[in-house]
Design a protein around this nucleic acid. Structure first.
Lengths: 151, 151
DNA sequence: ATAAAACCTCAAGTAAACTTGAGGTAAAGC
DNA sequence: GCTTTACCTCAAGTTTACTTGAGGTTTTAT
């Protein structure tokens, strides 16, 4: 079996993945992607870096932070190039997170008009006032609003 | 009709709304909330500030930035205290946004395992690689990935 | 009447996720 | 061979959304 030896320069990866060169440097510094150097000290990337970058971008779209992505990537094999199953495992994990996020936003949507629009602000079951936030990025905790409001 | 004259100190608002005093100062500086001052130059808030803060928090949970919240608040009446209908209008506007967000996350979820898990990375219809991002916070635009990937 | 708690302003610090710039080297095109 | 383009490193700047701290005043409780 002939191993593919195609490698990319940082500029090529930038073009193909749609992120800036500086971002690739940054991701490398953070340990999210890796490169070898050629004789002239320039970065040379294996093709799988494209998948990594895509996954980073996808995860960010779901609201996952870079450090969380880093943690998730840490579960990937580091001795070999991650394969289909490795990525599928990651995907499965994030799917749960996405489901939670979707559920949360849905409940927020469904109570939005009612809660914001109505006069009552001492809600017991409204996610706007009672965030059981697995999701609030750095939630400040539950809120206590009483009947002070009377517009 | 007796007008309610109840006002709150910044500390009271902080306690009732669950945000820090410094955050209230900050929101005021940003023009998101307003206060009068007493003779000793201390902030005194009308009760409706509590609703405002709650709405800010709710909007943030949906992923709306403070400046977008500011824009939305700008549509509220500034001569009178916003009423039920004013807030309902806001809520209706954000509901659309929430729906888009939910739809996007749903499509992301539904293609997550397939796209990340499979070998193909030159997807045409996958939101992971083809973000028609009304949602990506500051999207870098569409991504061009070709068949370079072959793990 | 005093001490403690709450408030005030303004400047500076923090974290995340990058970008920009300076000063210099390597590779590619003609 | 020379010039333009791409890279390199490292430091510093940017934005968002706040927090922390210093130095000083006002309220509140005893």
């Amino acid at each position: 079996m002939t191993k593919s030896t195609k490698v990319f320069s940082v500029g090529e990866v930038a073009k193909r993945s749609g992120v800036a060169v500086s971002t690739l440097h940054f991701y490398e510094e953070k340990g999210l992607i890796h490169s070898r150097r050629n004789t002239g000290n320039q970065r040379r990337y294996q093709p799988d870096v494209l998948r990594r970058v895509s996954v980073i971008k996808a995860a960010q779209k779901m609201g996952v932070s870079l450090s969380e992505i880093e943690q998730a990537f840490a579960t990937l094999p580091n001795k070999r190039t991650p394969d289909k199953d490795d990525w599928a495992t990651l995907a499965k994990y994030w799917r749960v997170l996405l489901n939670q996020k979707i559920d949360y936003l849905t409940s927020l949507r469904d109570s939005l008009t009612g809660c914001i629009g109505c006069g009552c602000l001492s809600m017991k079951h409204c996610p706007i006032y009672n965030p059981d936030d697995m999701l609030a990025e750095k939630g400040t905790g539950p809120v206590l609003l009483d009947q002070a409001q009377e517009d």
